Simulated scan of single mutants.
Amino acid sequence: MRVIVNARNRGFEFEASPNESLLMSGLKAGVALPYECATGTCGTCRATLLEGNINDPWPEAPGRKLLKEARDVLMCQCSPKSDCRVEVPGYAYHADASVLPPQQGRGVIRTAAIIAPDVVNFEIETDVAFNFDAGQFVTVEAPGVEGPRAYSMVNYERRTKRLEFVIKRKPDGGFSEWLFSAPDLRVGVEVNMVGPFGKAIFHPALSSNIVCIAGGSGIAGMMAILRRAMDEGYFKQFRGDIFFGVRKSADAFFLDQFDEAVEKFPNNLRVTIATSDEAPSTALRDRYSRLQFSEGFVHQVAVQNIGSKAATAMTYLAGPPPLVDGALRALIMEAKARPDRIRYDKFN
């Protein structure tokens, strides 16, 4: 099927499959269409259908509440039934040649373990090898759960059939309740995946100091960035500051990995754990003496610690929308960070 996309700056044309969303077909064709979550939640990929017919398998998608006209659709949810033409309210561009196109695959949950209160670390073995960069995410669709969910990978390998995630249990969260409701955390269950997606990508050619600010399970993508940077010896030359926010000391995880990373690069890598609901415990400070601990919201702690250094570093954000929004304001208004040097994927 032929799809024409009219954006504010120009038009694009590409071929689309009836088995793939308009968004996925466009990204595979090298068109950088506007999107954020790729799950039908945020509404960023809103478009107006001008001509043709589409298939909309999830009319109850949360992002539909942001649609303004009867002809409006979510490109991440709709696939073409005929040639069609849509109009997006924002801009679209030719994607950089280095951007990895998304693909579809199936997988099986192979391992799952609780690593903190209401936090699960699990791995999916896929039927096809996935290519992705550190900091990217895929959408996961489970049987009996309506709609896909977006999760960042903790690992970063190319051509891998192993995807690692961390997921936090959320009240009334469809996927997390499905996962936690089974004694075996759904080990052995098949799921569908699409990806990679995301713009908060790290590559060693960046050649800049980096700052990572994450809350809760948002640390997943930051761990991928940390792992790739360590494997490439990035911190031999550049500085890295990682800020991980949790509510209480008992909620923190991946501390052993952070501790080992700082031990390997003590001069250029600093990891700070910020607890918002209580002061960090003495036991935690004593056990992980190489790490820094602070009380407060993680984005505020980060801005207080990095100050003017944010203006020249590349900053990565991840976590709930209030955290990302608060961090953006603080970084730009207080730390004078340049907006074009802040990368994030906000999951509503």
Rank of each mutant, 00 (worst) to 15 (best):
M1R: 09
R2T: 12
N6C: 00
A7H: 01
P18V: 08
K28C: 13
A32T: 02
G43P: 02
T44S: 07
R46G: 03
L50W: 02
E51Y: 14
N55W: 05
E60N: 14
R71T: 15
M75T: 12
C76R: 00
P80H: 02
P80N: 05
Y93C: 01
V108N: 01
A113F: 09
A116H: 11
P117L: 02
V120P: 01
I124D: 01
F130A: 03
F137R: 00
E141D: 06
A142V: 13
G147V: 06
N155G: 12
E157I: 05
L163W: 03
F165D: 02
R169M: 07
R169Q: 12
F175N: 01
D184Q: 12
R186D: 03
V187A: 09
V189R: 11
K199E: 15
P204A: 08
N209P: 05
I210A: 13
V211G: 04
C212Q: 06
A214G: 04
G215P: 02
D231H: 13
Q237C: 11
Q237W: 11
D241R: 15
A250D: 15
D251E: 07
A252G: 06
F254R: 02
Q257W: 09
D259L: 08
K264F: 11
P266F: 12
P266C: 12
L269W: 02
E278K: 13
T282F: 10
L291Q: 02
Q292I: 08
I306Y: 00
T312R: 13
Y316T: 05
L317R: 07
P320Y: 13
P321V: 09
V324N: 03
D325S: 15
G326P: 10
R329P: 01
E334C: 07
R338Q: 14
R341Y: 15
R343Y: 12
